[in-house]
């Protein structure tokens, strides 16, 4: 393996590599965040207890059916195919001509949302039933229970799985080269297409992917620890020290 050649390629194309890596990271971040939000919303909807009123019950069943359909479709087809269908399909069917980056954000978000929906649902169901009951017993509705009690715990619990989705997204954005999104794989292909040194070029590419995924994993690990909070608490000695927060309006 000729390291000088590799170094040369990097020196001559570092800006293209970095731009590609930047695009990859951007799509992965946006896709993971929006996908997680989609997943949280769907998770909350899919855990609504069966309502008493008939109309609401039927409405909820239809909504749940549509959501299941969405999840099955996007988990059951490759993202590369979804990219082709959405990018060219929107144009063909509705005359909507979206640019490649918008399409990329859309595809990765919607795809991640389908996976996150199931992860969130599992996360919600893993919280013990007693906490739901205690929240209902003090008069909270489903939405208040979710926002104040269940989701904060769910989010902490699904953080590792979310990190996993993030890492997968960093790698899987490479399939977006089929709709000419200039992410890292597309950029590398362009470089290699000009210098014909495929191995050396993609060797650099793989190192960059590794750095991205490794860094992301570490940062998420730190975040997890931060969310867990301190192991200890301080006893509040006497009434004078009780820190009734200073309420400034």
């Amino acid at each position: 393996m000729n390291f000088e050649v590799i170094a040369d390629i990097f020196i001559n194309n570092w800006d293209a590599f970095l731009r590609g890596a930047g695009v990859t990271l951007l799509i992965a971040i946006v896709g993971t965040i929006i996908g997680s939000i989609i997943g949280l919303i769907i998770g909350v909807i899919r855990t609504i207890p069966t309502p008493d009123s008939r109309v609401k019950r039927i409405f909820l069943r239809i909504v749940n059916w549509i959501l299941s359909f969405y999840i099955e479709v996007f988990r059951g087809t490759p993202m590369m195919v979804q990219a082709m269908v959405i990018f060219y399909g929107l144009d063909l069917a509705f005359g909507i001509d979206i640019d490649n980056m918008t399409a990329a954000y859309l595809i990765v978000s919607v795809n991640t949302g389908a996976y996150m929906a199931e992860i969130v649902r599992g996360g919600i169901l893993s919280i013990d039933k007693g906490q739901f009951e205690a929240a209902h017993a003090i008069g909270m509705n489903h939405f208040q229970t979710m926002m104040n009690v269940i989701l904060p715990q769910t989010i902490r619990n699904i953080l590792p799985a979310t990190g996993n989705e993030f890492v997968i997204n960093i790698k899987d954005t490479s399939v977006l080269n089929v709709i000419s999104v200039s992410e890292l794989f597309f950029a590398s292909n362009t470089i290699a297409g000009a210098n014909f040194m495929f191995f050396e070029t993609f060797f650099i590419t793989s190192i960059i992917y590794l750095i991205l995924t490794f860094t992301v994993t570490r940062i998420l690990r730190l975040l997890e620890r931060k969310l867990d909070g301190p192991d200890n608490f301080n006893l509040v000695g006497n009434q004078m020290q009780v820190d009734i927060p200073k309420f400034k309006e």
């Binding site: 007693g130 906490q131 205690a134 017993a137 003090i138 008069g139 104040n148 009690v149 902490r156 608490f233």
Partner: peptide, 22 residues
């Protein structure tokens, strides 16, 4: 329902404190 529940305090065998809150 929720209105009525606020007027009835419930204490469970298994405590059921909210684990995310102090």
């Amino acid at each position: 329902v929720n209105q009525h529940r606020t007027k009835m305090g419930m204490v469970f065998q298994s405590f059921n404190l909210f684990n995310n809150l102090d």
